[in-house]
């Protein structure tokens, strides 16, 4: 196995653009565990955490750009980012894991339970995928194909995550539950972003995403539609929660039964909605 530590994006794209079996490492808090478990090694291991262009959170004209190799800890601590993304980041692992793990790694690992994925879906984030000859922007919703599967091509790298201005305003929240309180992997996670009309108080737009309840994180459009243009009372929130519940297809696994995932999502959804409608700024 060869280990590469490119210093620039250009170098990285050149290294990536070859026939050999390569794997990008961006923190390694998932990848190293997989490699140790299987004993298998890629021909090339390409570490992208030394590339300055891929690190940092920058304000742009369109909104915010997050470098793919930005650590989870940096995201959790950055107050210019929406609440749901920060608290999603803060839910991941331990301080040690958050200091090493990166948002790009969390996305490209494509685990259904990744705690930054549902926040990014409800913030309608777009991903910039680059290769030596081209680049493309893709909605994060379109990125995931299944557990550990994405649309990323062999010679491509996720270089940045973009969030548009309109999603930086509004209120958002994130809730997850696991087997215990600390260092825990989500049995279910849920993120909601919404924008209310300043005049009427009605919800103008809402986006809901749930994780660890299907092969990929999922957006729950039916529930969004039910809540749009309303100022929901507990009764309506509960009906929307039932729609959320009906939209998911969870499985039994080592962390949770499918039944618990079905049951608990109602509570998590009610929790976020109540909080967003009551005190949207608390994060």
């Amino acid at each position: 196995m060869q280990y590469f530590l490119p210093a620039t994006l250009k170098e990285l794209l050149l290294v990536l653009d070859s026939e050999s079996k390569s794997e990008i490492i961006a923190g390694g808090t998932d990848l190293i565990i997989i490699m140790e478990g299987s004993g298998e090694r890629p021909e090339k291991l390409i570490d992208i955490t030394n590339i300055e262009e891929l690190i940092g959170i920058k304000e742009e004209e369109y909104g915010i750009s997050i470098g793919a190799a930005t650590t989870i800890a940096k995201i959790a601590a950055n107050s210019s980012l929406p609440c749901c993304l920060r608290s999603g980041a803060n839910s991941i692992g331990s301080p040690q894991i958050r200091n090493v793990g990166t948002v790009g790694g969390n996305i490209c690992n494509a685990s259904p339970c990744g705690d930054t994925l549902t926040p990014l879906i409800c913030l309608n984030a777009t991903l910039l995928l680059r290769s030596v000859n081209s680049q493309r922007l893709i909605s994060v919703e379109q990125f995931f194909l299944g557990p550990k599967k994405t649309v990323l091509k062999k010679n491509e790298v996720l270089s940045e995550i973009r969030i548009n201005k309109e999603y930086l305003s509004g209120a958002s929240g994130f809730r997850m539950i696991g087997q215990r309180n600390g260092q825990v992997i989500s049995q279910v996670n849920l993120a909601v972003w919404l924008q209310r009309s300043k005049e009427s108080g009605l919800i103008e737009e809402i986006r809901i995403a749930a994780g660890s309840v299907a092969p990929t994180p999922v957006r729950i459009i039916e529930a969004e539609e039910m809540l749009c243009n309303t100022s929901p009372e507990p009764e309506l929130i509960h009906r929307a929660a039932l729609l959320v519940q009906a939209s998911i297809t969870p499985i039994d696994d080592v962390r949770s039964t499918a039944q618990y995932r079905q049951d608990v999502i109602i509570g998590l959804f009610g929790d976020i909605m109540t909080q967003l409608l009551k005190e949207p700024q608390s994060c």
């Binding site: 309180n181 825990v184 992997i185």
Partner: peptide
């Protein structure tokens, strides 16, 4: 409340401290 060794066909399927929920400092 938290800890449960889980077996599938006699094989422990949560032999790590992520899926085997030993209490953490937050618990």
């Amino acid at each position: 409340h938290l800890e449960k060794i889980q077996y599938r066909d006699g094989v422990i399927i949560n032999p790590n401290l992520a899926d085997y929920a030993v209490p953490t400092i937050n618990d």
